[in-house]
Design a protein around this nucleic acid. Sequence first.
DNA 1: AAATTAAAAATGAACGTTCATTCTTTTTTT
DNA 2: AAAAAAAGAATGAACGTTCATTTTTAATTT
Lengths: 192, 192
Amino acid sequence: MTVLKKSEIKRNALVKATITLVNNNGFHATPMSKIAKMANVSPATIYLYFENKQDLVNKVYIGVKAAFTAYAFATYQDHMPVAQGFELIWKRIADFKLNEGEEALFLAQCDNTPVIDEDSRQAGIKHLKPLLDLWERGRQERIIKPLSDYLLYAYTINPLSFLMVMQDRGAFKIDKNTIEDAYQAAWDSIKH
Amino acid sequence: MTVLKKSEIKRNALVKATITLVNNNGFHATPMSKIAKMANVSPATIYLYFENKQDLVNKVYIGVKAAFTAYAFATYQDHMPVAQGFELIWKRIADFKLNEGEEALFLAQCDNTPVIDEDSRQAGIKHLKPLLDLWERGRQERIIKPLSDYLLYAYTINPLSFLMVMQDRGAFKIDKNTIEDAYQAAWDSIKH
DNA sequence: AAATTAAAAATGAACGTTCATTCTTTTTTT
DNA sequence: AAAAAAAGAATGAACGTTCATTTTTAATTT
C-alpha cells in the first residue's frame, strides 16, 4: 500500500467530494463551502491545492479521465486483431463504468455540459488515441464500416454513458446480461 | 400565420432566450437578468409568466419536449410495419435535430444533467409511448432483438444527441450521408 | 533527546460581488 | 379613469475568494 502524505490525503478528499457533489447537483449548484465541508476542510484550504473553482473541476476532470483511459487500455496491445482488441477495450470500459460508477458519472456529466474548459476537454480526448488507431486499422482491413470516429464513438462507447446515467437515476439495473447485449449491439452497429 | 397576443410574444421571447443562454452557458450560469435582457423584458416581467427560475426551465423543457415528439410522430401511424415505422420515426427525429438545432441541444443538456425536476422529466418520457409500443411489437414479431427499451434507446436515439453536441462544439458536421450512416448503424444494432 | 526556531499547512471570519426575487412606480390597455 | 402589465430600482441571501491568525510539521540547535 502506498503511503500518502497528509497533504495528498486532503487533496484526494477534495477530489472525491467534488465528484460526489457535482454528480448530485451539478457544478454550478455545488458551492465551495459544501465541497470543503464534505472533505472536512476549511474553504480556504481548497485554494492551497487549486487556483479557483474552475481550476478545481478542470483538474478533477483530467485526473479522472486519465484513470479511466489507463484502465481502459491496461490490457490492450496494438498488435491484437481488430475484433479482439475492440472487444477487449470495450469491455474494460464497461468494467470501469460499473466498478467506478461515481467517476464514470462525473465524466459523463462533464462531457455533456459546458462545465469544463475547452483545453481540458481536448486534453481528455488525446488519451483515446489507441482506440482511434485501432478503428483506423479496422476500417483499412474492412472489418469495421468506413465511418468517422465520431460515429463509431456514438454507437459503441457513448451508449454506455447513457446507460450509466439511467442506472444512476434508478430507472434500471445494469447486469452481466445487459453488458453482453450492449456489446453485441455495439459491435453489430459498426462491423462490416 | 397565427396571430399572437402581445403577452404570448413576450413569453415566447423568454422561452427562446432561455434555450439559447442555457445552451451556451448551462442553467446555473444563466442569470435571470440575462434572460430578461435577451428577451427585451424586465427581470420582474419573467415572474408574471413563471413562478421562479426552476419553474421556467421545467416549463421550457416540457414545451420543447412536446414540440419534439409531436414532430417525431407526426407522420407515423401505428399500423405500419415495424421496420418501416422505425425508419420513419428515426428519420423524423434526425430531421428535428437538424432543423431545430437549438431545441434539440437544449433537450440533450436537460436530459443529461440534474437541472430539470424529476416530475418534468417523467412527463417528457411519457410522450415516447408510440415508439415504445412499436419496439414491443418489433420484439414480438422477432424483427427487433429482445432488448430492453433502455438499450434500444441507447443504441438508436441517443447517439443522435451525442452527434448533435459534437457538431455544436464544431468538432464535425452532420450531413445527409452522416444521417444515412447513422441510421444504418442504429438499425444494425437492434435488428434481429 | 529535548528545546527552540523556522516553515508550511490549515483555519474561520470577512469582503465584495452576483443573483433570484420583491417592491414601488410608471406605462399601457380596456 | 380603473385595471392590468411592465419596468427599474431595491433587497437580502449566497457565493467565490482573500486575509490575518493559529496550528502543525520539520529543521536546527542545545
